[in-house]
Design a protein around this nucleic acid. Sequence first.
DNA 1: CTGAACTTTCAGTATATATTGAAAGTACAA
DNA 2: TTGTACTTTCAATATATACTGAAAGTTCAG
Lengths: 176, 176
Amino acid sequence: MSTTEQTTAELRAARERFISQWGVISAAWGINRTMAQIHALLLTSPAPVATDEIMEALQISRGNVNTNLRELVGWGLIRIVLRKGERKEFFEAEKDVWRIFCTIARERQRREIDPALAVLRECAERTAKLKGTEAEEFHATMSKLGDFVGQASGAMDRVARSERSKIMPLIFKMLR
Amino acid sequence: MSTTEQTTAELRAARERFISQWGVISAAWGINRTMAQIHALLLTSPAPVATDEIMEALQISRGNVNTNLRELVGWGLIRIVLRKGERKEFFEAEKDVWRIFCTIARERQRREIDPALAVLRECAERTAKLKGTEAEEFHATMSKLGDFVGQASGAMDRVARSERSKIMPLIFKMLR
DNA sequence: CTGAACTTTCAGTATATATTGAAAGTACAA
DNA sequence: TTGTACTTTCAATATATACTGAAAGTTCAG
């Protein structure tokens, strides 16, 4: 086997390992396994990829690929690329790690943290004026939880909106 | 209806809303819905609770309660309480929000981030010496991803190991 | 020991989630 | 306007995940 062939084989093996494992890991974080695999595929693809190629590579149906591509576009993690003279749509992933992180942080904030926060605040609010130890304790728990989630989410938001070059050095300096 | 009855009713309603919604929210983060509901129940209970009461409150089976209680103990989010003269086990949740946060951060780190990091490093490692644009790009992607996850996870780890009173003011000062 | 009080296990089942694939929809060149 | 090259949809189906409940296991007082 030539050196080039070995390189190709090893590269493909590493890439497949990444794609497969990224699916497993993402599932633990409440992200659709296939969506994560498609993302991993695009993330490690040297060029934009079309639906058929993804179907082939991951051995999944057209409908499945389509659904998850739209979802990834919705998250802002990939974009559609059109080639001149071709009707087909190709897709490419944002490859800057910092941008990926900010996108995910902001989307999860909007989709999941904000609604959670609303529930906590509502539960604190509606028990604010109740009398009695139990009611007061419940109110205190909800308030503390709400404040904490609010502060943590605000902090994350500011990190995700700032420039990497400005915020990251600060963080690492602080966490000396 | 007396004021006391109104208070009781309103408190119960708020508590049920919290328990139910906490389950929904947690599911979005890859946490078992029932586990989250049991946690919410204990978090808002004025006293330690035994299996039967949880079965009753959430209308779920003994086996289900048992499994999820063990899982919560495994996470370090609740502890077993024994009452003198009683054979039954009672459970109570850690109620300090900062401690809860640190526990969850450390456990997810150990269970999910560290393995993910290992995969990224392995993929970077095995493609380190390959020649060619595609291989080099893949290696660069894996390295960047690995470095980023490693740094972020290290930062989170240091936050979760520090004292709240020391680290939180610093963070908010920095994110001014 | 014995049995009552309690916990754990796990095969079977239910529920939720993801996937398929064919049909319908869309866009456009000729 | 028709045919072709594509994308989207969605009912049916498969798969993964969670839950049940009865039986087996454990613990311990008497």
